[in-house]
Design a protein around this nucleic acid. Structure first.
Lengths: 226, 226
DNA sequence: CTCGGTTTGTTCGCACGTTCACAAACTCCT
DNA sequence: AGGAGTTTGTGAACGTGCGAACAAACCGAG
């Protein structure tokens, strides 16, 4: 069972389960049912059980799941039992926030370097780390091992940063810049786009409002531009 | 065609298309094919055409799409032709970054208030706005109309903030706090979890590494805790 | 006007994800 | 020991999304 590939949708939910389990462990709960964990994670209980079944059979019928045991199993499956060095490039407002974000360092992720192209900021200390030149990327990777690259630069610089990251061997990139990065096969990019999220919310909000006022706006007032 | 509901997966991609169209417009391109736009957005061209067909028939066979016209149509569909007031709660590192994020203000979204529970920060000016008390939430909503709420508080405070937002009429929430919010029916919550994104990357990175070294780790060294 | 080339919009088959419903398995009580 | 109650793990039905392939429609040349 555990040698088969885990579905992508399941992988995306594992961190949520892990978070819920951590909260339970902190609250002193040692055991939980699939329904409890599912509601804490905001999903259907059947979906939770199927997700967990992809990792193996870690529950006990008639009883439920041992919080600590399941927590370890999910952590191991995701890979949090090892150490992941993280390089953050672009220390603007967002990069600053990311460097200080406790959620990064807490779970196996260790920010090992902050890089920025702006030389006037080099030497400045943020979250206990000195901002270094972007040219040091290769050195950082050599020093701490290849890890995960986080791009928090303006959109125009993002592709160049990504290209350089790939060059020095980074194959997992978290991109906060509002651009689609093109990378070679084998490199994973996850995009976090704050503006897109707002736009999706706006779409649903608009639909909800339109529903209320029963305006269907059937005719389009704008003609083709010539 | 345009009166039917647009699939959720399509809605999530519309902002990406919009961004690509904006880049084209800035570059002076007035017309484009589905293939050009699709590659710029990083998707399959067939998928792009199907997505756009849900909005209506805005292209010309044998020619392609008019950039400006399509840009307007997508903007209108998402609802960006109207003005969306946004309230940001929790002006820590992340809230600070969000307040300064230009992508918010650029596309119909207008940050109308920054709120924080910490009274020592009240009056401080961030991105041209004065930080106000969280108690002012109802006033802000009354003043600027019900809008979108952004939660950038620590995890422990997030649920209380969400509850209050719902109370004063906000029904679209963008949650950056690492918690699952429980909200009543009709309220939309989108979650942006930086730590989860890293964990998903780590999972894939681990698989890539494991593939290389051919270590399948079939036996589990940890026994059930008693 | 007709014909060849091009590009959209749509149909179809397939794979993936979700939910229901239930058998298997465990605990507890008598 | 046995049965009642509970909860997991999974098989099956269902819905959604994706990609290929193709017909419909448009442009331009002759």
């Amino acid at each position: 069972m555990s040698n088969t590939r885990i579905p992508e949708a399941t992988v995306a939910r594992l961190p949520v389960y892990l978070r819920a389990l951590n909260a339970m462990a902190e609250a002193g709960t040692t055991s939980c049912s699939s329904l409890e964990l599912a509601t804490a994670a905001g999903v259907n209980s059947a979906k939770l059980r199927k997700d967990l079944s992809h990792l193996g059979s870690y529950g006990t019928r008639g009883v439920g799941y041992d919080v600590e045991y399941l927590r370890y199993q999910i952590s191991r499956e995701i890979g949090l039992t090892q150490d992941w060095p993280v390089v953050v490039v672009g220390i603007g407002n967002l990069g600053h926030a990311l460097a200080n974000y406790s959620g990064f360092s807490s779970r196996g992720f260790r920010t090992v370097a902050l890089l920025d192209a702006d030389s006037s900021r080099h030497g400045e200390v943020v979250a206990g780390l000195e901002i270094r030149s972007f040219d040091d990327l290769a050195d950082v990777v050599a020093e701490h091992g290849v890890g995960i690259g986080v791009i928090a630069t303006p959109a125009v610089a993002a592709q160049a940063v990504a290209d350089r990251m790939v060059e020095v061997g980074i194959r997992s990139i978290l991109n906060f810049a509002p651009t689609i990065l093109s990378v070679p096969e084998g490199v994973d990019v996850r995009r976090v786009d704050l503006s897109s999220e707002l736009q999706i919310l706006a779409y649903h909000e608009q639909r909800k409002s339109g529903e209320r006022s029963l305006v269907s706006a059937p005719v389009d007032p704008v003609e083709e531009v010539s």
